[in-house]
Design a protein around this nucleic acid. Structure first.
Lengths: 207, 207
DNA sequence: GTAGCTTGTAGCTCCCTGTTACAAACTGAG
DNA sequence: CTCAGTTTGTAACAGGGAGCTACAAGCTAC
């Protein structure tokens, strides 16, 4: 036990296992084999068992892994067991879609605040919270312990929001816009790019 | 030259370069160095140059890479230069957000059709096309040469749509719902899971 | 022409991952 | 109770991908 820090590869794979496990749980399954996880993740079954056995003996021979148990174990390994507060920027179609779905909630993220600049949207109820005006950003980040900012705003506004988030002390930004964000080196930006993932899939299909 | 088939790693990295290049182009840049690409992708600059130099000498020493030229070269390498038609399922918030943004269009994908089952949405204009009723799926897939199905539907409907897509001959499915889809082994399913990507980022932040 | 970048490329090493193999443990049928 | 069929946990090995260092060649700007 006692890993200082996971390899990039291991952390990435554990995250993918978590995704499949969460989905499988929703489908009503209670147990799953490394072989089955492999079919959904395209990761070698031996590799999966090796990844997991490095942290303990989680499975039952002849049966597989208990899904609930494995989810909580992986969360523990990734040190993300708790509840993490995130803030969503932009209450347009995308923002509402994100807030309305369980995508973040299922993985321990709570959308603690939603911001917009449009007066028609401020005050509107979206998901579990009311839309606040963008000017409240610094104060809300502090009082709600916001760890992550999710940008569902037009590309033209993205950099400004990123700057304000950085100024407020947020270190992780999830960017749904197609703007290229400049941030200090201690801030992580993750940009969603479904089209690029599609190109990747297409390449192997066309080969 | 003459690579039969790219390695998984190379194809993945080329895709990421493409993402950054596309964004940089939108920001008005015309040229970029391997060092700059590295900062946005976290890929080693030497690795980037090695990846690219395997296919030709695209850069200018002392200057960097011409963005337009590099984009078209990478598209050529990935054999995805042309226009590819995709179909979008679900004209709710998420579907409208996807259709309204340029995320797919910027990478050579054309949303050739949008489907929904809700009579109130059928006939509505979203993006460049009108929403069709779901029952037209088989016919439209054939006439519009649909290569990819994008699922922006509730989890409860996802498997049924996937089955119909498979029956119509579509081999690539992009899944925005959190359903676990079962498909034949020759069909590729890519499930979007922002929360999992966030967990991954969070792990390295907390370490 | 000189200083400063940036590419293209080589060489080396490390370690990640696929593969094969097999004993141990659990389930279910008979 | 026994036996066949799974599936995990683990070892050992090999191949290769990727980081790192280093440096010549070529481009720009002053």
């Amino acid at each position: 036990m006692s890993i200082d820090r996971l390899t990039l590869g291991v952390a990435a794979r554990l995250s993918r296992y978590l995704q499949v496990l969460t989905q499988a749980k929703k489908m009503g399954k209670t147990s799953i084999s490394s072989q089955a996880i492999s079919e959904y993740t395209n990761v070698n079954p031996t590799q999966i068992r090796r990844d997991l056995s490095g942290f303990g003996k989680f499975g039952k021979r002849g049966v597989g892994y208990d899904i609930d148990m494995l989810i909580s174990q992986i969360r523990k390994i990734l040190r993300t067991s708790g509840q993490h507060n995130i803030a969503l920027f932009g209450a347009g179609n995308l923002g509402q879609a994100i807030a309305g779905s369980g995508v973040f909630g299922d993985h321990g993220f709570r959308i603690a605040a939603i911001f917009d600049v449009d007066p028609d949207r401020v005050g509107m109820r979206v998901g579990d919270v009311y839309v606040r005006h963008y000017s409240e950003l610094p104060q809300v980040v502090a009082t709600e312990s916001i760890m992550v900012g999710v940008l569902a705003v037009p590309a033209s506004a993205a950099q400004a929001v990123a700057d304000d988030l950085v100024a407020a002390g947020v270190k992780i930004i999830f960017n749904y816009s197609d703007a290229l964000l400049s941030v200090p080196s201690d801030v992580t930006v993750h940009t969603s790019s479904p089209a690029v993932e599609l190109l990747y899939a297409l390449y192997f299909y066309l080969s």
